[in-house]
Simulated assay, not measured.
Amino acid sequence: MPSRPLRCLLTVPPLTGHLHPALALAGGWEAAGHEAAWVGNEPVFRPLLGPGGRLFPTGSRLFREQAGGGEAAVRSLWEGFVVPYSRFTLKAVERAVAEWRPDVVLVDQHSPAGALAAHRAGVLWATFAPSAMEIGRPLRGERELERWLDGVLRGLWASARLPEQEYLDPRFSPGLVLSTASPALLGGELPPPYATVGPLLGGRTPAEFPWERLDGSRRRVLVTMGTLSAEVADGFHQRVARALEELAPDVQPVLARAGGGPAPAGGIALDRVPVLELLARGAVDAVLCHGGMNTVCEALVHGVPLVLAPIRHDQPYVAERVAAAGAGVRVDFAGATSGQLRDALRTVLDRPSHRAAALMMGRQLLHGGGVEAAVGHLERFTDGRNRSLR
Rank of each mutant, 00 (worst) to 15 (best):
R95I: 12
K91S: 15
F88D: 14
F88H: 12
A113S: 15
E99Q: 12
Y85C: 00
E94G: 06
A92H: 13
H119D: 12
R101C: 06
P84I: 14
V97N: 02
V107F: 09
D108W: 01
T89Q: 05
F88M: 09
V104F: 13
V83W: 10
P112M: 03
V83D: 12
A96C: 03
E94T: 05
S111E: 12
P112T: 07
A118D: 12
V107E: 11
R95E: 15
W100V: 06
A117M: 05
F88R: 03
A92I: 14
A98R: 14
A98L: 12
A117K: 01
V105C: 01
L116M: 04
V83S: 09
V93R: 04
W100H: 00
A118K: 07
E99S: 11
W100D: 01
V104H: 00
L90E: 02
R87Q: 14
A115I: 10
R101N: 05
K91H: 11
P102D: 07
A115G: 01
A117L: 03
L106T: 11
S111A: 15
H110C: 15
E99F: 06
V104D: 10
V97L: 10
T89M: 06
A92V: 14
S86F: 03
P112Q: 04
A96K: 03
H119S: 11
L106I: 15
V93H: 07
R101K: 12
T89I: 15
H110R: 07
R101Y: 01
Y85N: 04
L90S: 00
A117R: 01
K91R: 15
T89Y: 02
T89C: 11
D108E: 10
A118V: 08
V97C: 06
H110W: 13
F88Y: 14
Y85F: 15
P102V: 06
P102S: 00
V97R: 00
G114A: 06
G114K: 05
S111T: 14
L106H: 08
V107T: 14
L116Y: 10
A92N: 08
L116S: 03
V107N: 13
G114F: 13
G114S: 09
P102F: 03
R87M: 08
K91W: 06
L116W: 14
P84R: 01
D108H: 03
A118Q: 02
L90K: 06
V97M: 07
S86A: 13
A117C: 01
K91F: 07
S86I: 10
V93K: 02
A98M: 03
W100Y: 01
A113K: 00
S86L: 06
V104M: 14
A98T: 11
H110Q: 15
S111H: 05
H119M: 02
A96P: 04
A96S: 03
V83P: 01
A118N: 01
A92Q: 10
A92G: 07
D108Y: 00
F88L: 08
Q109L: 14
D103K: 07
V105W: 11
P112W: 04
